[in-house]
Write a protein that binds this DNA or RNA. Structure first.
Lengths: 215, 215
DNA sequence: TGGTGTGAATCCTTTCACAGCC
DNA sequence: GGCTGTGAAAGGATTCACACCA
């Protein structure tokens, strides 16, 4: 029984890229754009861009292309970023602190409303406008703010525990920066970013191109 | 003419996951493991694990599984992390500074040997053991250390310029954290991480599961 | 002419299923 | 009995190619 109307993960990723490109165009006051223009900037094909969009409707104008601002609105609606998301940050070490200060999140519709850490040393410290809270207060803050998303920047050893705590507190989506596999409870979606792995992938590409043929 | 002996990008990514899992097992003094054990932890199938490894050789023992430490060595060799890579960091804002302090890079074989920033305010500041250098010194440092990889954490507007400077200085692989599409010159490989996009992907998943059927 | 939307064809990846081995 | 390695089959994703529209 193939449940065949699912959207490929790769398509969702590319929609985010399109949104980013379109936003740049809009900032430059460009009003319309073709699928091949967008594709060119991103190293994709024009057919790919049109197919990706076709999953969600017909947004283009034959002979013209796409209206930039109109397509931005559609993409935001599709991605669910037409409204702001309240996000909590768990783990306030170097990386967590840097992310709390990162402008790009707010710009794309994600606002950090609480910062938490298990270490008593860090609780009470200020990070920008935020004050680091103890983990005990997580559930209260999540329910008060209605946050659905948590960004987790704790050491690998504590990641699974924190995931479970976050889920119990009502979190429904997790962006995980810990370098370990985590299991999200049913009903909770998860997206992991392992920074070291991104370098390993580069290393592989650099290594294999040195020995060009398999032989 | 299909050039069919290429390794899928997804396979490389999973190899990195396998290495991470195996390292955890090795730390626990576990000597052998089966493909289904590894797959289970990562939410994959056993056949997938075996197929991925089969691109590179036969590493398993029928009836037994894989020798953990042996497979770790093979994976490191395949990924090119059996030796350390010297890496330069360009852009020393919040994120760059956090990455400079990140332990996970060193642990996986990547050592940051230089930090650079275009802003005169930051040049001369200390980040851990490193002193932030001016961009003028990039080429000299790259050729002195033989670095092949750059991690780029500059604002989107300057990303492409920095990429070109890095490539001219002799860099061959770029890990890009700037939230913009960059074009790497021929012979330079590139891997981009857009943190906001990872949250957008989560947002999509949370949004679509709310309206379960397409209808 | 320049561009979209989309079935059909191709290409790639994953899963199945089983021979062979310890 | 348990597990690997691997052809064959199935399933998805991308590209092609063209009808159609402004």
């Amino acid at each position: 029984m193939p449940q065949s109307n699912a959207i490929p993960k790769a398509t969702v990723f590319r929609l985010c890229l399109y949104l980013r490109e379109l936003t740049e165009l809009s900032d430059k006051d460009i009003k319309t754009v073709s699928s091949s223009k967008v594709a060119g900037k991103l190293g994709l094909t024009d057919a790919q861009v049109r197919k990706d969009l076709a999953y969600f409707g017909q947004f283009g104008y034959p002979g013209v292309g796409y209206h930039v601002d109109e397509l931005i609105d559609e993409l935001k609606r599709i991605l669910g970023t037409n409204h702001m998301w309240d996000v909590v940050l768990i783990g306030c070490g170097n990386l967590g602190t840097a992310l709390a200060a990162y402008k790009g999140f707010d710009r794309q519709g994600f606002h950090i409303v609480g910062a938490f850490d298990a270490s008593a040393d860090r609780v009470g410290q200020k990070i920008g406008e935020l004050t680091v809270q103890s983990m005990d207060e997580l559930a209260k803050t999540v329910s008060r703010t209605g946050s659905r998303i948590a960004v987790i920047c704790v050491p690998g050893e504590s990641a699974q525990t924190v995931v479970d705590q976050a889920a119990a507190a009502g979190i429904r989506g997790i962006l995980n920066f810990a370098a370990t596999a985590i299991t999200a409870p049913p009903g909770v979606v998860q997206n992991s970013v392992d920074l070291a792995i991104r370098l390993e992938q580069l290393s592989f590409q650099l290594t294999k191109t040195k020995q060009p043929a398999k032989r």
